[in-house]
């Protein structure tokens, strides 16, 4: 064939349909916003029940995780996500979905070698690099603190 790799790359980009940016962003905004709104509602609810703000926040997160796990188990989270994109990916419900879905999927490979080994196959990187960043920040803060007059 006469075409070069560079030309073919250009051509394939021209021919390939692009994501519908506006539709995608609207979906992400409304679904993501709604999940956060529910989170805020839960937080307010737990505060009225006498929990202090940080505990109410943590309880709200846990509740969202449980809701996400239920929707994931029913196969609904995936259906919403196929439209909502980042709207269901970025909130903590997306993290829960990323933990629960491999647990269900790899159950047939056993409780230890399937569920145990593969549960964090998707969410693992978030924990690894989030933890690394926090440790680095902790060390920096430790040496910075005296200079800040702490």
């Amino acid at each position: 064939m006469k075409i070069s790799k560079e030309e073919y790359d250009k051509l394939s980009r021209q021919v390939s349909p692009k994501s519908k940016l506006w539709t995608d962003c609207l979906w992400a905004f409304f679904v993501g916003g709604t999940i956060c709104l529910i989170g805020e509602g839960l937080r307010a609810f737990y505060q009225t029940r006498g929990f202090i703000l940080t505990d109410a926040s943590a309880l709200a997160s846990v509740t969202l995780v449980v809701l996400s796990a239920i929707l994931t188990s029913l196969g609904w989270y995936q259906k919403i996500a196929s439209k909502a994109g980042a709207g269901t990916l970025v909130p903590i419900t997306g993290f829960a979905n990323a933990v629960v879905s491999p647990a269900i999927e790899y159950r047939v490979e056993g409780l230890v070698t399937g569920v145990g080994a593969k549960m964090f196959v998707i969410a693992g990187p978030v924990i690894v690099w989030g933890m690394m960043a926090s440790v680095v920040w902790g060390v920096i803060y430790y040496f910075l603190r005296p200079m800040l007059g702490g």
Partner: peptide, 24 residues
């Protein structure tokens, strides 16, 4: 008012994620 901002900021952060998916 808190609810309004929760919706707006939460949705906005998701849109940033969506832009990263679609444009990069």
């Amino acid at each position: 008012m808190r609810f309004f901002w929760a919706f707006l900021v939460g949705g906005g952060l998701c849109v940033i994620g969506q832009l990263l998916i679609d444009l990069t």
